[in-house]
Structures are given as structure tokens and as C-alpha cells.
Design a protein around this nucleic acid. Structure first.
Lengths: 182, 182
DNA sequence: ACCTGAACACCGTTCAAGT
DNA sequence: ACCTGAACACCGTTCAAGT
């Protein structure tokens, strides 16, 4: 990649982060290009789809979450590890309003740029769930995809201004149903 | 209202129901007008906002849900009544993809055409919850707004093609956390 | 290699002109 | 009273032309 192209690429990611934090995942691509000082066509050549832009923007956060999952798996008791990681997952996706819906739409579409990240996230959560189930700390009649769906629904709650204040408590209610009282 | 206007009004509601069932709540207003055989401006004079169209389209279903709430309150045990009504609420909103998000956005905005319907739904659910709590059948550390949020999050799950097959089971998981084992 | 303006087919809003 | 076409400012997609 040429130096000027690389500069555009990186700057676009920074600006996209700002604009999407402000306006959510459906922010205008034209607006992102405008605020980055490049033509719309330039943005679209770097990131041909909205999802490819999202993927690039979120990659760092997703990598951190994957690392974190491996970490808590060895340092925390099963139930604590699961809860802590899910809390981070929900907090991370809630940073960008609407992104959890894009992720959920991508999980069964291998063509989507977000597909791999979603599968990785679900697998990380599944490992923590399986570990908790093996320790008798989580109910065994749900699987990793169920857990992913519940986490996504809590992230969606966090995206709604009218419901956001209740997410923390509802996180406790829902996860209380996943964990086995011990 | 003039007879031709009344005919347009009613026909627009039928067509809107079809189009929104197919394409979700963000369906093109132009498309609805086109398929109803009227100009876009005519649709917009009958229903000046998307939410006013949604409200008119959903009014019948909402009225039925309100009636149903009063009904089960007198005919079913508290826990059964609560579960049955919530199941109907989720099924009803899931008929039109995305509508639950519009409702949630409207609940704190008195200007929205959907506001009153949402408040009514939440109140109906709250009554059933309070009754269950008084009977010792539901946990007492959540309120009607929490219940509304949980129901909305389950309806959102039902809107996502990749997650919809899990809604029924997850409904059981989440509501199992609301009810007190007896 | 990389960038861009312009044409295109959409969208919802608004309103002057028609019946 | 009620309806409508057209102008407007947006949107994302595409591509020929420029550096």
C-alpha cells in the first residue's frame, strides 16, 4: 500500500469510529468520507461495504476480547470468568449503537466481513460456558449459541436510550438464570 | 372524511401491513404508496410520520392485547396469566420486524404516535407482574419497566433470522428468572 | 497506484397546482 | 376536501477521467 493510501486508510478508521459512536452503525458513509476530507469513492474503495468498515474498526476490540477470554479462563473461577467476559462483550458492542444487530446478521452469512469475528466471539463465549457447565456452575440445557443470543439481546438493550439504565440489573437477572445457584 | 379519502385510508393500512410484514418497519414509504396505487404525498397526508402509520396499523392488535390482559387476569393463576400474555406480546410485535425497536424509542417520547400504545402495553404487563408478585409467584426486585425491557429484548431476538429459532427456549430461560419457583 | 467528480436510482419532505 | 407531480436535499453504487 502506498504511503498516502495508508494514511487515508488509518485516518478513515479514526473518523469512522467518531462518527459511528455519534450516529450509530447506520451513519452516512458520505458523512464519514466528508469528515475525513476524502471523496466518498475513496472510502468505498478502502472499505467496499459498511460491514468491512465495521470489521476493521472493531478488530482491535475483538482481538482484546479473545485474549481476555483465554486469560480469565485460567485466572478466574468458571462462573466469575463467564460473567466478567460477557460483561466486557456487552460493554464493547454497546460502544457503537446498532453494531450488535450487524453482528447477529453476519453470523450465518459467511460472505459478510463481520462473519469471522462473530464466530470467534461465539466460540470464546462457548468455551467459558462449557467450562462453567463442567464445573456444575451453569445450567446444561443451553449451548453457546443460546448464550450468544442472550448476550446480544442484552447488548441491544444497551443500545436503546430508554432501556439502557436497566441493562446492568437485567444483566444480573438473565445471567442469574444461566448460572446454577451454588 | 370524504368517502374516497376513507377508502384510501383503509386501503393504505392493508397495503402497509403487507409491505411491512415483507420488508420490516423501515420499508419504503414510496413503495407502500406505489403498491396502494396513490401518490406518495397522499400517504403522507393520511399518516404524516412513519410512526403514525405504524400506530394505525397496530392499533387493533394492541387493543386485543389490552383486552386479553384483563381477561387472563381474572381467568388464570398469576404466573400462567403473566406468561401467556407476554408470549402473546412477543408474538404480536414479532409479526412486524423492527417494530419493537420503534416502540421502545417511543416510550419516552410523548410526541411519538406510538407513545400511548407503548405506555398502555407496559401498564398491562405491570398489572400482571404486580399480581404475580403479590401471590409470591414472581420475584419482587424488578418492576414493570424491567419486564417491558425483557419482553422487548425477546421480541428483538425474534426479529433476527439467525436467532429466531431459539426465542421459544430463551423465553423460558428468561421468564424462569422472573418467576419464583414454587 | 490511487483518488475523485459526476451520473444514477433511490429515499422522505414540502408545496404549488389541479379536480 | 382531497389528490398529485415536481423540486429538493439526501443516500449508496458505479465508473470514466485525472494525477
Amino acid at each position: 500500500m502506498r504511503a498516502d493510501a495508508k494514511a487515508n486508510h488509518d485516518h478513515l478508521l479514526v473518523v469512522a469510529g467518531t462518527v459511528i459512536t455519534e450516529h450509530g452503525v447506520d451513519a452516512s458513509m458520505r458523512d464519514i468520507a466528508r469528515r475525513a476530507g476524502v471523496g466518498l469513492a475513496t472510502l468505498l474503495r478502502h472499505f467496499p461495504t459498511r460491514e468491512s468498515l465495521l470489521e476493521a474498526m472493531l478488530r482491535t476490540s475483538f482481538d482484546e476480547l479473545t485474549t481476555k477470554a483465554a486469560e480469565v479462563e485460567t485466572t478466574s473461577p468458571p462462573a466469575d470468568a463467564l460473567l466478567a467476559w460477557l460483561r466486557d462483550f456487552v460493554a464493547c458492542t454497546t460502544n457503537y449503537r446498532g453494531v450488535v444487530t450487524s453482528m447477529v446478521n453476519a453470523i450465518e452469512d459467511p460472505e459478510s466481513a463481520l462473519h469471522d469475528s462473530c464466530v470467534t466471539m461465539r466460540a470464546a463465549g462457548t468455551r467459558l460456558l462449557t467450562r462453567a457447565q463442567a464445573a456444575g456452575a451453569a445450567r446444561t440445557d443451553i449451548d453457546g449459541a443460546d448464550l450468544f443470543a442472550l448476550a446480544a439481546s442484552l447488548a441491544w438493550l444497551g443500545d436503546q436510550p430508554a432501556l439502557e439504565p436497566r441493562v446492568e440489573r437485567l444483566f444480573g437477572v438473565v445471567m442469574g438464570a444461566v448460572l446454577v445457584k451454588g
